[in-house]
Amino acid sequence: MENFEFINAIVLLANFVLVPALSYGSQLALATLSLTIVYGVLRFSNFAQADWMSFGTMAAILFAWLFQSIGITAGIFPTALLALPFAIIVTALFCLLIDRSVYSFYRKQKSQPIVLMIVSVGVMFILQAIVRFIIGPNDRKFFDGEKYIIHALDFKNYFGLEEGLTIKSTQLITVIVALIAMISLFYFLQKTKLGKSMRAYSNNEDLALLSGINPEKIVIVTWIISSILITTAGVLYGLDKSFKPFTYFNLLLPMFAAAIVGGIGSPIGAVIGGYVIAFSEITLTYAYKKFFVYLMPEHLEPSGLMQVLSTDYKFAISFIILVIVLIVRPTGIVRGKII
C-alpha cells in the first residue's frame, strides 16, 4: 500500500505540474527565442513581440476557419496546424512590411536602441488595433481534432491508481513541434552559412559589413525567423489554452523575463529561460497539500494548501525571478550580451 501512495503522489505531480509546465515552457521558449533573435540582430527590446504572437495566431485561426468551411481538416490533428504555414507567411510578410515602412528608417539613422523600443510601442498599438478589429477582443477556442492522448479516467482504471494522468494531444504536439523548431533553428544558426552570418552580424556589425555580409538580407531573414517562431508559439499556446489578445499581450513580461534570465541575446539562454520561468510559475503556485497527504503519515498531514504563492500571482513569479537574476547574475544563466 505504501508503494501505491508514492506512485499516486508522483502521478499527481506529473499531471498537474510536469506535463503543463513542459508544454507551457515549450511555448514560452519559442516565443522567447523570437524575442531574443530580434534583440540579438536588430538590437532592441521589441515591445510588439507579444502582439505579433496575437497577430500570427489570429491569422492561423482565420485560415483554420477557412479550411473548415471548405471541408478541409487535419483528421485527428487540429486544423490550425494545417493553417500554421499560411499564417507564418502572412505574419512574415506583414512583419517585413512594417520593417520597410517603420523600422528601416531608424536603422539607417543608426538610432539608439531605446528609440527603436519606443517605435515598437507604436507598432504594438497598431497590431493590437488590427487584431481586435478583425477578430475581436474575446476569448476564442479553435481546437479541433482528437483531444486526449491519455485520459485521466482511463489511466486510473488501467493502473488501478487513485490519481489519473491526462495528456492532451495539444501538449504532446506542443512539445514535438517546439523541439523540431528549436533543433532546426540551432542547426540553422550553427551549421548554415546564412545562420552563421546572422550570428556574425549580431556579434560585430561593422566587421560583418567589411566581410561583405548584406545587412538588409540579414534583417529580412531575422524577421522571417521571428515570425516563424512567434506564430508557432502563439498557435501552440492557443490550441493548448485559448486565444485572447489581452492574455497574449500579458505574455510579454514572461517573455522578457525568460530572455533576461536565460541571458539576453543568447538563443540557448532563451530556451532555458523559457522553461525556468514556466516551471517556476507552475511549481510555485501549485497547492501541494494532496501530494503530502499521499506521502506523509496521517498525523503529519499538512493543514494548509501547501502553496508557496496564490495562482493570482503567476505573473509576479516571472518578475521575481527576473529581479533575483538581475541582482545575482545580471548577464543571465547563459552569459548573454554585455549589459
Partner: peptide, 26 residues
C-alpha cells in the same frame, strides 16, 4: 580590397574557423 580594422576586428562570439568562413562570405 580587404581591411583589418584596429579594434573589434574579429567575431568574438564565433569560432576561429567560423571567422574564416565569414571572411569568405562572398
Amino acid at each position: 580590397i580587404a581591411f583589418v580594422p584596429q579594434t573589434m576586428n574579429v567575431f568574438s562570439e564565433l569560432t576561429v574557423e567560423e571567422n574564416l568562413e565569414m571572411g569568405a562570405f562572398l
